[in-house]
Design a protein around this nucleic acid. Structure first.
Lengths: 252, 252
DNA sequence: TCGTAAGCTGTGGTCAGACCACATGGCCTG
DNA sequence: CAGGCCATGTGGTCTGACCACAGCTTACGA
């Protein structure tokens, strides 16, 4: 007897693709939901008739894409567990594509602008229609702004981290997980460029002051339900910083 | 006393992460550019001091993310080659996140709406400022519309495929590769839902006729440089279809 | 001389088996 | 009854061995 079947149709998919598609099918059918454990690697291996290394290649992909979390040891927390956290995968994808020149940094910034405008528009409109009894709560975002106001106590890198967290908090508040994870990925992919641009600023104190002021203006516009104004401020906020740091070639 | 080594710095990264970060560093430094070959798996293995299986796990990730293409055999086309094609990775990521319930389908549609509006706005503005000598060329997109007009000759699935290609062509024409690959991923991740919604339509002939008409209206608005009108049509175009197919719960 | 066919070489693709570190949970001992 | 020990099962890794494949080299024959 041969090792491979000779009459049945040969599966031209690579072994790890078989594993990946098997798991995807289980997810689509609802047989696997967030929180569930995947079968053990050795079990999947024998169940699907592929080597354990092929199973591991598929699991590695799922891990990087943010679908599973793996843990060694034994017990309820060990093994591969479905988590479905998209932002990590989005960040890896965009960061690597920028590194490999698949994404132009200018397009990343432009896209961030589009999404950011959509987020504040959504929030402002939600705020305008919010009931008295359930007003829009921007608490998480405002707390980050307060942390940025500790003048002299916050380094440039820390400030920019808080800045990123603020914009991400707005995206989260909009309730759109797709946009939120995209924003996380976009920001993450150009983080090193943002930091590298700081020395190009005329005055950090001046710029950070302006950024702080603009952040407050964004919050105010959202809370007053003024979508158009929120969009304008956000637009100036982002393009201004990049222009000051010569982040983007001005030839555009 | 701790278990870990006290003199040498322990590399807590997993072996495959070492490989991934090594390649990412080479990309960032420009030592690897699109078209280049990666070292052979066995060479990377010994060079980085990890097992070949760990190298393969890293390469698998890069392949799924759309950074490399692998090919068996010998010669100039064999091996792993940097390609940096983001749309495949974006599609895998979004499709799996939707399957794993990390992305809500309604958010996917909303996000598509945001990006689509940005694309047509960009195109309309570009058209408005285009020189007589170099007018905006929507040829690729229009050809797809012509293909959709072969009444009775195009199946529902084919029509929807052409529809997707039309919107993707617009995104490509906008020149923003980030948005274009996002649109590809978004559309891809809900393709099965789009197809599944067709039977819910009152009349396919009626709906497809309306879609065709709206497509032409989008093109016309872009060519006339009317960004606002283009946005409105695109908005009605997309939300209309999803409403007709009960694709999205109306409770929202 | 030239063309063709054979085989050589190096590539990714896969598998099997062997360890390791680790975390749990039950068992055994005091 | 309490505490520590170890069996068990998990992912993480490495090694070595094949295979299929594609290009290149070589040798053979017309």
């Amino acid at each position: 007897m041969t090792v491979v079947d000779t009459h049945a149709a040969v599966d031209s998919r690579r072994a790890w693709e078989v594993v990946l598609q098997h798991i995807e099918a289980d997810l689509l059918a609802g047989r696997l939901v967030p929180g569930d454990h995947l079968p053990a690697e050795r079990a999947l291996s024998s169940e699907l008739g592929v080597g354990r290394s092929s199973v591991r290649e598929a699991l590695r992909v799922l891990e990087v894409l943010g679908l599973i979390r793996t843990q060694t040891g034994s017990g309820p927390q060990s093994g591969a567990i479905i988590v479905a956290r998209p932002s990590g995968g989005m960040s890896s994808l965009m960061r690597l594509q920028v590194a490999a020149q698949g994404f132009d940094v200018r397009d990343v910034v432009k896209t961030r602008l589009v999404l950011e405008a959509a987020v504040v528009t959504e929030l402002a409109e939600a705020s305008a229609t919010a009931l008295e009894s359930a007003p829009l709560d921007l608490g998480d975002a405002v707390r980050l702004l307060d942390a940025m106001d500790a003048d002299g106590q916050v380094s440039e890198a820390e400030f920019l981290t808080l800045d990123a967290a603020f914009h991400l908090a707005l995206a989260d508040l909009s309730g759109n997980t797709v946009i939120a994870s995209m924003m996380a990925g976009l920001r993450n992919s150009i983080e090193s460029y943002v930091l590298a641009g700081v020395p190009n600023l005329r005055s950090w104190a001046e710029t950070s002051g302006r950024l702080r002021h603009e952040h407050r203006a964004i919050v105010a516009a959202i809370e007053s339900g003024d979508a158009e104004s929120a969009r304008d401020v956000v637009n100036a906020h982002i393009t201004g910083y990049y222009a000051e740091t010569n982040f983007i070639s001005t030839s555009e």
